[in-house]
């Protein structure tokens, strides 16, 4: 039983990364009908921004020889990385996608792949091939609750992921920008005629998605402190799967599917050897999609409606 509960905690942590990255995919897909295949690499850039921010802040603290507590550095790192990475996202939209807004969707998808490769290899060219170790900001403390080991890191990761998901959901449901995003999912002709600047909304969509990816990147660095230029690829693909599984443009859908992915992967390794993990996990997801092609929260959608 303890073992089982332990794995639930692990799955929640593992799913947090997928959930945060999947939301970015899902938002862009929902608003612009575009697969932003560079999003996994935007996550990577976010992790690196987090790495440099955290290292910089620690160096600053050391220089002034004041003891700034690690959790404060973590909070600042999260905020700064999210802020800066939102500009990375807006740049991707402005340079990569906006010129192709009326182009066939396949061209836009290829653009995403190319931007992804450029971000990966750009990082490689700029920073070299060596991996970076994310500085340990909060030294792990282990709590034992009824046979389950919970670290403070796990708690931080899960709580931040859930809080950001809910905040974004509120944003999309209850603000004028969120409503504009939902309306843009239907068409680009009427929305501006109701006084809504679609370029602003498109940029905002990318900014929010990228901010969440940066949060995922920082949290990932806290849990698995090894960063490399290609760290975003597999996470990006899997988060993309979660976004589709959750349903087009649904934030809660993407997040729950992200957590579900975490659960499936962790529980598969509970029973099978870990080398079989993705083989079995993604076979299960393939089966789910066969029976639920629109995902969990997806609306039946006809592309014809989109201008």
């Amino acid at each position: 039983m303890g073992y089982f509960l332990q794995n639930i905690v692990n799955a929640l942590q593992w799913g947090s990364f997928y959930a945060l990255v999947a939301i970015g995919y899902s938002m862009v897909y929902g608003v612009l009908m575009l697969f932003n295949f560079a999003h996994g690499d935007v996550f990577m850039v976010g992790a690196y921004i987090g790495f440099f921010t955290a290292s910089g802040l620690m160096a600053l603290a050391a220089m002034g020889s004041i003891a700034i507590p690690g959790w404060l550095i973590l909070i600042l790192t999260l905020i700064i990385a999210m802020f800066l990475n939102s500009f990375v996202g807006m740049a991707v939209e402005r340079i990569g996608y906006r010129p192709l807004r009326d182009a066939p969707r396949a061209s836009a998808a290829i653009t995403g792949l190319m931007i992804g490769i450029i971000l990966e290899t750009g990082n490689l060219a700029l920073l070299g091939a060596q991996r970076r170790a994310f500085p340990p900001l909060i030294p792990p403390t282990v709590y034992k609750v009824g046979g389950v080991y919970i670290t403070n890191q796990k708690i931080v990761i899960i709580v931040v992921a859930l809080a950001l998901t809910l905040a974004l959901h509120q944003f999309v449901q209850h603000t004028k920008w969120g409503m504009a995003m939902r309306a843009m999912a239907y068409d680009f002709l009427v929305v501006p005629l109701m006084g809504i600047p679609i370029n602003t909304i498109a940029a905002l969509t990318f900014a929010l998605g990228s901010a969440l990816a940066a949060a995922a990147g920082v949290l990932y660095g806290v849990a698995y402190p090894v960063l490399g230029p290609y760290m975003g690829i597999i996470i990006g693909w899997k988060a993309f799967v979660a976004a589709i599984l959750g349903g087009r443009g649904s934030i809660l859908g993407a997040a729950s599917a992200g957590f579900l992915l975490g659960f499936i992967e962790i529980f598969v390794t509970m029973i099978f050897p870990s080398t079989m993990r993705d083989f079995i996990a993604y076979t299960i997801i393939l089966l789910i999609l066969t029976f639920l092609p629109n995902g969990f929260f997806g609306e039946p959608y006809s592309a014809k409606l989109r201008l």
Partner: peptide, 23 residues
């Protein structure tokens, strides 16, 4: 308004109106 209805199908009536208050 439009010749062929161009509504945002899965949004509520109230949301349609509130959306136009954006500016």
């Amino acid at each position: 308004t439009f010749q062929n209805l161009r509504l945002w199908r899965h949004m509520s009536v109230l949301d349609h109106v509130k959306m136009s208050q954006y500016s």
